[in-house]
Design a protein around this nucleic acid. Structure first.
Lengths: 208, 208
DNA sequence: CCATGCAGTTAACAACTGTTCTCTGTAATT
DNA sequence: AATTACAGAGAACAGTTGTTAACTGCATGG
């Protein structure tokens, strides 16, 4: 059934990935709307016209980057929210997870934070779609917790959205501490933890 | 003491403001890092070189835009947070205030949301400075409320930061409903109100 | 009233952009 | 073995960019 992955297709995917990687690198100190396709091909060492074999435009490439940055993150959501331990444990674990991901994929995180409200509409929409999916997944995970008894589905989605936004905020703050002393990073972690804790407390008394 | 505002200086300020206005308009569907100075001068109807009489670069213009967009907003902070009425009243009033401001100054709001994590470092820093000032002002206003008794100054700043981020989120969401049916806008308002309410509840039980 | 300062203009520069068309080599198909 | 498909190269295009220099006209201060 599966197509034989010929040498040809492999090489094409390799070039495509090189374009994505180069673009991600160039986007560390500029926005997508100022990224030129020649700039990208030059960084890869390939003719400008080769770009068109893979993407219609840089906006198109941006949408592909959204998929790469967020697509593989969905499995982590459920396991984090539904993890064992009390509320406090889960919060600490979530913050650690975010810190780890920012360390592992800083360019991805920067790209998402930057382009979420950026100047390229299709990319903004792709990000919004993914984040909406995240929120729904968080809601479903929350719904299975005993603390969610009596909650409406709508209120749970509200809470989930709050968590998702909070996670992105935290990730963005970690990003700014990447080449700062470790104590600064610890400070961000503590602050994020307390924010999450306050939200969790609000959740606990929502139905009062 | 005050310098006589000669015809000359008035005209200069007028051109400068025209450049700022034109840039703000152009930034509705692109990011600052892709804004060209010729683009701006063309929109104003002035020679490209005239730009240099007012700004060193488009990044410099961006910093000026931050001042214009956020500088005049500080007085509103205190009066909103310290306003009369109960917690619920203040929340509704805050959301209404945000909705009104987004309607009145959509381009300013879009610019701030976009460039907060944008590709131009000096502009990011200018926005962070202003938002940090906002957070401090909110903290000071919160500190004078009876609900804040027993809170550490640090925790109050944490809460203030949460509120500020929440306001920006809300503003950005209102922005997306600008040319949508009124019911969509009402929905965003309700959602934002409930988010704020949950945070307020968390605040109320923080010291438990 | 005259000399200076300076906002804005004009012209030119090298460098860059996205896009088109034509071509080449080679993997894949028949 | 012959043919086709197609990733990438090369060259050329009209148009754009930021920046420099020398200029012009006029409000300003002496």
């Amino acid at each position: 059934m599966s197509h034989t992955v010929g040498i040809r297709q492999v090489q094409k995917q390799k070039t495509r990935q090189a374009l994505l990687d180069a673009a991600l690198g160039l986007l560390e100190d500029q926005s997508l709307s100022s990224l030129g396709l020649r700039e990208v091909t030059r960084a890869v060492g390939v003719a400008p016209t080769a770009f068109y074999r893979h993407f219609r435009s840089t906006a198109d490439l941006g949408v592909a980057l959204v998929e790469e940055a967020l697509g593989s993150l969905h499995p982590m959501i459920g396991t984090t929210v539904s993890g064992s331990g009390g509320s406090e444990d889960r919060i600490v674990r979530a913050v650690d997870l975010i810190a780890g991901h920012v360390r592992a994929q800083p360019a991805h995180v920067r790209f998402i934070a930057r382009e979420r409200h950026g100047g390229v509409q299709p990319v903004r929409e792709a990000i919004r779609e993914q984040l909406d999916r995240f929120a729904e997944e968080v809601r479903d995970a929350l719904a299975e917790q005993p603390e969610s008894e009596g909650w409406t589905r709508e209120d749970l989605l509200m809470l989930a959205g709050l968590y998702v936004d909070q996670m992105l905020m935290t990730a963005s703050q970690f990003l700014e501490t990447l080449d700062a002393p470790a104590e600064r990073r610890e400070q961000v972690a503590r602050l994020a933890t307390r924010r999450m804790r306050l939200i969790a407390i609000g959740r606990g008394h929502w139905l009062d």
